[in-house]
Computed example of a mutant assay.
Amino acid sequence: MRAWWLVMLMGVMLAGCATPSRNGKPLSAEQTASPEWQGRISVQVQGSNPSSMSASFSLRGDAKSGELDLYSPLGTTLGALQWTPQWVQLSDGGKHQFFNSLNELTERATGAALPVDAIFGWLQGRDVQATGWLADLSAAPQGMVTARRISPAPEVMLRIKLDR
């Protein structure tokens, strides 16, 4: 009986090391030509209702049309965010929710509306301005980007660490 539990534990541990598989959705020509980033993202929201979210991610596309997949430490998909000029969607656990804007979608997925246009620039090492946000790109050559929203309240801290 003890050996059976050890085998189960090892199986769970090995599953946690597995690389999450991509969904089979075809990418547009623009998305295929765009860079892809993978790493870890953390969003901490301060204020009267503080919250935090941390996940591994895979980001493809650009601010107009793209996909962001979020994964748990064990590699299970926490959510898949997709956007085009026509629609914005969050898929999680087989449920699909549609939103009016990318700001609404990122707020639902991470706890804060994120400046997606600026994030794409920051990931490329460009000091893109976003209203209310201060970005620190000093560690961008090492694959680390941090940004802090100071206005409007509540304060939000965004940290991205890219896989190298």
Rank of each mutant, 00 (worst) to 15 (best):
G121K: 11
L123N: 13
Y71E: 06
D163F: 07
G111M: 04
L81S: 09
Q89F: 08
P141N: 08
S65P: 00
D117F: 11
Q82K: 10
Q124C: 07
W122C: 13
A139M: 09
P73M: 00
T131D: 15
I119N: 09
A139H: 14
P152S: 04
Q82M: 12
A63H: 03
A112C: 10
A113V: 12
R108E: 14
P141R: 13
K95T: 10
Q124F: 05
T77H: 06
K95M: 09
M157S: 15
Q129F: 09
H96I: 13
G111H: 05
S72H: 05
E155F: 00
E67S: 10
I119D: 04
T106R: 07
A112I: 06
D92K: 13
Q86K: 15
G143I: 05
A147K: 06
Q97T: 06
F98K: 12
S151F: 11
H96W: 02
A113Q: 09
D136W: 03
P141T: 02
T77S: 15
E104T: 08
V128P: 01
N103L: 13
V88R: 13
P152C: 02
P115S: 07
L123S: 11
W122L: 07
Q124P: 13
L78E: 02
A130G: 05
T146G: 01
A109M: 08
G121S: 15
K161M: 09
G75L: 07
I119W: 00
G125K: 12
V128C: 04
V145Q: 00
L78S: 09
M157D: 13
R126N: 12
H96L: 11
W122R: 11
P85K: 07
Q124G: 14
Y71W: 03
A113Y: 08
W87F: 08
W83N: 06
L123E: 11
Q142A: 15
L70I: 02
A140G: 06
A140D: 03
W133F: 03
E104A: 15
F120W: 15
R126W: 07
W133Y: 03
Q82P: 07
L137A: 10
